[in-house]
Simulated assay, not measured.
Amino acid sequence: MTGEYNHSHEYFNGTPWFVYECTIQLDASYRRIALFLLYLFIFMVGLLENLVVVWVNWRRRHSANGVLFCIINVSLSDLMVIVILPFFMMEVTMDKVWLWGRFLCKVTNLIYTVNFYSSSFFLASMTLERYLSLTRPSSPSFFPVVGRRRWVLCGGLWVFSFFLALLENVHVDLLEWDEPGCYMVPEHNYSEWFVSVAAFCIIFQFLVPAAVIITCNVLIARAVKTAPDVQGRRDVWLVHVYSLVFVMCWLPYHLVIFLLVIDDLDPYIFSCNTVEILYFSFTVVEGLSLFHCVANPILYNFLSKSFRDNLVNAVVNCIPREGTGVPMGGGDQPNAPNGGGGELGKQRKLSNTSTSQSDVGS
């Protein structure tokens, strides 16, 4: 996030080749203003949304099914990157100047990159869990409620995300040029490193999760269409929205990365103006990809009636009774569906047909 990909240019008479060919002039000041406002919006809205999601769902963490368990991890992952957005907001405002030292340069980049992978991994796992719970309700859960398997799988995804993030982070450092900046620049074999890391990024963060998410959502939509007790067709198209939002958030980013890889392998395949546009647009599509921190809570939680009921019950339980100081709502029942036991049969029936992620077993 904080790093900038640098291009190794060929020289002609001591001058980079692109100096002779570049004619386009891109005003970066408007980009800085737009990115600052974008980060500010994501920080304010995403922080509020994900805190509410974690607060409501954490109350049921011990009995939560695999889908809800993945939702909690997605929100925790998104919160990680949201809390470091103020650093990027200031960096954008000061035109890539980094004022917080080498340690925070490496740590903030590591946190961002871990989220980069973990969010997609848990979204794919959640979609797979949802598909299995709808089509094979008698089969063992991918993330079982009890036992060590849940924590081993969860820890494995976080560790794998951390490992992939380290491949980039080892080359992130604070460089003192005209002004201090946080960059991803290895000392040797830049092209080989960049192509390798970009390939890991495209495959593990986008292609594999997208294949799982899209395939499972298509199969879920087909299963819901044939369900005799489905209550509405809203759930049929909602699963396609899940896939569409994931692709819209990440496809532009990975498309630009892919074109930058091509440019690095063959510096003369694109014109100078094209290369300038690619580097100009990189930070833009990178910022737009963070919209998943705002979209995920809405799609996977606030659109769910089960989550809204639990949110209302959580708020009511926090309000003290007049004159007693005892919370209202008859006590906290975080393990019960919608905060109470009367809807258990209805919720189990709903879980067989609803495609709303939070409604499964909640």
Rank of each mutant, 00 (worst) to 15 (best):
H292Y: 11
I298K: 01
F280W: 14
G361T: 08
H9D: 13
V67G: 00
N301T: 05
F270N: 02
Y190L: 08
L123W: 09
D27L: 03
F258D: 03
T2I: 13
N73Y: 02
H292M: 12
V145R: 15
V316M: 08
V170R: 15
D78M: 13
P297H: 02
K106V: 14
S141R: 07
L219V: 04
F163G: 10
A34H: 12
S139G: 06
W58C: 04
F69H: 12
I319M: 01
V145E: 14
N296L: 05
M90N: 07
V360Q: 07
L68D: 06
Y112N: 04
S271G: 15
K106H: 08
A314K: 00
G339D: 04
S356Q: 13
L110C: 08
V74Q: 14
I84S: 03
T113G: 01
V218R: 10
G331Q: 08
P297N: 02
L166I: 12
W151A: 07
C22V: 11
A165V: 04
V185N: 06
W158K: 01
C272M: 04
R308C: 03
F103I: 06
T324H: 02
S29Y: 07
L344A: 13
F41D: 03
D309G: 00
N317E: 05
C216I: 01
F206E: 04
C22G: 03
V145F: 08
T113V: 05
H254E: 13
G340L: 03
V312L: 01
F302V: 01
V172E: 08
V146T: 13
E168F: 15
G361K: 08
F69T: 14
I262F: 11
Y11N: 07
I203L: 14
Y183H: 12
T215Y: 10
F204Q: 02
D263R: 09
G342N: 09
R32P: 02
K96I: 02
E10S: 04
V170M: 15
E343M: 03
A199N: 11
P334E: 09
L166S: 10
N13R: 12
G340I: 04
T283R: 06
F307K: 00
G147E: 10
L174W: 09
T93Y: 15
L174Q: 14
L157P: 04
K225C: 06
F43D: 01
D266F: 06
L99C: 04
W55E: 00
E322T: 10
S75F: 10
G66I: 05
S289H: 06
P228A: 09
G331S: 07
Y242R: 00
F18Q: 10
L259I: 07
L85M: 15
H62K: 15
M44V: 15
Y279L: 06
Y183M: 14
R59D: 10
A28W: 11
G155Y: 09
P209R: 12
H7A: 13
N115M: 08
R130T: 04
W17I: 14
R32Y: 08
L79R: 04
L174R: 10
V19A: 10
V261M: 14
